[in-house]
């Protein structure tokens, strides 16, 4: 394989990772506020279909993306209302919506199956595109891909370097303490759930208008992406930069599955296509193992020198979830 082809493939990984990056950042914001939005798998499918539909009808990519965000925000509002206001189980509501939105997407999308729609083309950035290697990799992408890359930095800065970000960490970590300091916990949780949902809703049309153009019903191949986004959120330790790394890793594995296909004829191609999904989940195992009791005991029994190194490695992989994730907040 020539270097050019590899470079072309890796640029494709950055592009096909874009929707996952955006969705993961959305879910990271939501979960940082202490709410789990489990509906992602359905939301991505529904927003992908509706975004595509709107783009076809209006012949405008912008309205397509906007429609996707509205869908994501609406579904997130249902999650927020039932879990924050009505105090129903977040997991239950999210799961129901994941299934219902998926079926709704397949039902409503039936008439537009196979339609031709607008496709987002790439826009090269002058001068930067001529940098060897990097230019091809990063600066000959579509507008949404640039936005996804910028978003990683913005989200990181927002969460860790600004006052509202500090407050966001507070309402997810110790809502009672944040409340005492004057934060309106319920309102902020609503806000971040809806904003996060809107971002997830942006990921859908990004598939149908750019990465995998068109709506093809059940064979669109987006079923499962939402679940992976949830896993990558954990893998990323609720940190946008690490989460983006996870998203690109997943996109890379998917590409690898395609590239290796001709060389691994003994494995059915269908297996290689689904392989990245379990691999990503296995990655969770490494991230979480350090938190378990037996691991702590094992490490404690190691000789000093090895132990220090083991602890260091484990700490660097570990991720700790926001303290109040998934629990409703009650004012006393």
């Amino acid at each position: 394989m020539g270097n050019d082809i590899i470079l072309f493939g890796l640029a494709g990984v950055i592009a096909s990772g874009a929707p996952i990056v955006i969705a993961v950042i959305g879910e990271t914001l939501t979960e940082r506020a202490g709410v789990i939005n489990l509906s992602l798998n359905g939301v991505i499918l529904l927003s992908a279909m509706i975004g595509f539909w709107v783009a076809v009808e209006t012949d405008s990519l912008f309205f397509g993306f906007l429609a996707g965000m509205v869908v994501g925000a609406l579904v997130a509002t249902i999650v927020a209302f039932s879990s924050i206001t009505l105090k129903q189980s977040q997991v239950a509501v999210g799961f129901i919506l994941a299934i219902t939105c998926r079926d709704l997407a397949y039902f409503l999308g039936n008439p537009i199956m196979g339609s031709q729609g607008p496709i987002m083309l790439s826009t090269s950035i002058p001068f930067l595109k001529d940098i060897p290697i990097l230019g091809r990799l990063l600066f000959q992408q579509s507008l949404m891909t640039y936005i996804s890359i910028i978003m990683i930095g913005v989200a990181w800065f927002w969460i860790f370097k600004t006052r509202p970000g500090l407050m966001l960490q507070g309402i997810g970590e110790k809502p009672a303490a944040a409340y005492v300091r004057g934060a309106n916990v319920q309102k902020m949780r609503y806000f971040y759930t809806i904003v996060g949902g809107a971002l997830v809703g942006l990921a859908g049309p990004l598939y149908t208008l750019s990465v995998k153009p068109g709506w093809k019903g059940t064979i669109t191949g987006l079923d499962g992406i939402g679940w992976i986004v949830l896993a990558i959120t954990i893998f990323g330790g609720w940190n946008p930069i690490r989460a983006a790394f996870g998203a690109y890793l997943f996109a890379f594995l998917q590409w690898l599955g395609l590239v290796l296909q001709p060389y691994m004829t003994s494995i059915p191609s269908q297996v290689l296509q689904v392989a990245p999904f379990p691999l990503m989940i296995l990655a969770l195992l490494f991230v979480n193992m350090g938190n378990t009791e037996w691991m702590e005991r094992l490490i404690a029994s190691l000789p000093d020198k090895v132990r220090l190194r083991a602890v260091k490695i484990l700490r660097s992989m570990q991720s700790r979830q926001p303290g109040a994730l998934g629990t409703p907040f009650e004012r006393q």
Binding site: G224, I234, P268, V271, M280, I281, L282, L285, T292, M295
Partner: peptide, 30 residues
């Protein structure tokens, strides 16, 4: 996975679903 790996049963379960699907399709086509 839940007890000894610290992996939430939702994600462990999803991962195992994907593996089961891959295994099933692999057997049918292989």
């Amino acid at each position: 996975l839940k007890t000894f790996g610290g992996v939430n049963e939702i994600f462990g379960g999803l991962g195992l679903n994907f593996i089961a699907t891959a295994l099933n399709i692999g057997l049918i086509f292989g």
